[in-house]
Design a protein around this nucleic acid. Sequence first.
DNA 1: CCAAGCTGATTAATCGTTTAATCAAACATA
DNA 2: TATGTTTGATTAAACGATTAATCAGCTTGG
Lengths: 353, 353
Amino acid sequence: MSVGRTPATMTEIAAALGVSSATVSNALSGKGRVSAELSAKIRQAADELGYVPSHAARALRTGRTAVIGLVLPDISNPLFPQIAQAIEQAAASAGFGVLIADSRGEIAQQTAAIGRLVERGVDGMIVVPRRGSRIADIGTPVAIIDSPSTPGNTVSSDHWDGGVQMGRHLASLGHQKVLLIANSRQSNVQNDRVGGLEAGLGSDACCETLWVEEMEVSQGAGCALGLAARVADGYTAFAAVYDLLALRALTELQRDGIDVPLQASVSGFDDLVWSSVVMPPITTLRQDLAVIAERAVQALGDVIAERDAATGEPVSAERNGAGVPMTLVIRQSTGPTMHSVVAGAAHARRDGR
Amino acid sequence: MSVGRTPATMTEIAAALGVSSATVSNALSGKGRVSAELSAKIRQAADELGYVPSHAARALRTGRTAVIGLVLPDISNPLFPQIAQAIEQAAASAGFGVLIADSRGEIAQQTAAIGRLVERGVDGMIVVPRRGSRIADIGTPVAIIDSPSTPGNTVSSDHWDGGVQMGRHLASLGHQKVLLIANSRQSNVQNDRVGGLEAGLGSDACCETLWVEEMEVSQGAGCALGLAARVADGYTAFAAVYDLLALRALTELQRDGIDVPLQASVSGFDDLVWSSVVMPPITTLRQDLAVIAERAVQALGDVIAERDAATGEPVSAERNGAGVPMTLVIRQSTGPTMHSVVAGAAHARRDGR
DNA sequence: CCAAGCTGATTAATCGTTTAATCAAACATA
DNA sequence: TATGTTTGATTAAACGATTAATCAGCTTGG
């Protein structure tokens, strides 16, 4: 019955109290000069009448929509749900709505999607760039979530330090010969993580990096990584640069009869949904996306505010904060190297030592 | 330089051509009566001046924002990226923007999120309901993506038929004793899939359903499913009701030294990212989310259109189309039962036969 | 030749909010 | 008392598009 009721407007409140609509506006926004009593009366009337401000009218008048765009150039990224959730949360509590734009990875579609956002009048946008891609300067405030080594108004996890943490964890378990598994050399994030891992493992460790993307050029997508051979070769740990690769490594090892973690440890990054439910659950690093989202929204809000304070055009301030720390989540996929274990499934002990 | 330029308005176009703004509006929308020549001239001027309609002004005048809300009560759902992508695509080509709303699974948050969407004046919303939850009737058009057995303005895959397809596939490989793995009895989708599986396997098959949620109540979250014992018991196939469960099954079996698919087959639903990269890749059913999204947006558009045609309040028409077919993706995690295989890793052959 | 009808355009109101400009009254200062 | 200043409110003009109502010309029909 009462569902379809048109919400009250400021004019109606004004009429009901016999004041002008400007006074109502001032009272509700706390901006002009309104006596305390009248202000209270107006607020109460607004409540009683079920006043809901018209975003459209406000947007028309002020030129600000209180909506930000979320641009996900690579939406198939399984981290997306978490990012979207965190951003939506942070944006909502900052009074912003979130309009999504996707581009199926294609640059043309991305441009089109961004264009639609701009036409819709978003106040700014948060971009999670496709690896290595640079965002063209549109006339709209932008905040970027990527690696700290990306220039611009960027927020991100401290991927390098994450790598260091994982490296130390593996080193402390006694791993000396570690295979790093990454996908693309183009990715700032992946490079940071690889660098951190090497640093964390220390200079004593012998480690090599397997770039899956390059391997797949010759062997075809979804090819086996040949990890069993690596185990035979003396590798005792496989540190992937994100959980999907870790999962790929884990299942390949298990399929080939290698016990994880007894014969080989496996680790990942990002703590995606499956990492905790597979057997064994995967040791990984969790990003604090709530904090990242909060900072990104905050940074964006700042730029927006300062832009319409000064009508000048310094649209994207270069403020680049410290990376947000990642937290190590230790599960059962990593453990001591086999020779430091008392007993174990010995049927595949073929390492050199 | 030219980035921050304020886009031209209708009034400016009108001034430039010496006509009235109403004529410009009519020409661009094709609604009023404007001569062909003038119309062409206006359109050209609009192009040259870089006219961009003001969504805010239009929304204020017409009461329609050309934005729909996407409500994901359970955003951690790994299917979300695909859904969001498909919806965004379909919405964009229907001229809608997509505002996201998430609720971290909590009902209070969901209500709040929906409220924010309504206040923002979305023209309608697409809801992917939390299992079993019913959507309260807000005064806004709604389309639902769930199981066909959900009442209301619903679009969905034909989960039952998907189950049938998978059941037949497994039966054709010779599996007679199959364990179905599901999570919650509350979920319409899961129930449909289970029912379909049973039907597809045929009445000769012996199958039981493992409800993981119930198991975890007593054994704790992330507990082992005890599948190795099932294999010993004669089960040759494990049909999970979604890929995350399939992955859990696969890794548990592999960890316990059981070869997939030689000793046991594993299958899932939804074709999530990891399904194709694990070893062995998982046989699964893919939803045609593009079609689903298209239909949902279409249905929503219809309701929106008919609502502001008739000012009456029949907000949610009960139109419930046929389910969208799912397609079977056969990979290496399913295969013939072992005793019909010539050779195999025999070290774990403990089944009864 | 006049009423009626059609065409192609204009006028002006409207959506709901914000905000600069104005104003009346009260109050303080000289 | 005349002059400023502060306070608390009002007026009215935007913002940019849509649209009902109106109007000036022209064409037609009887």
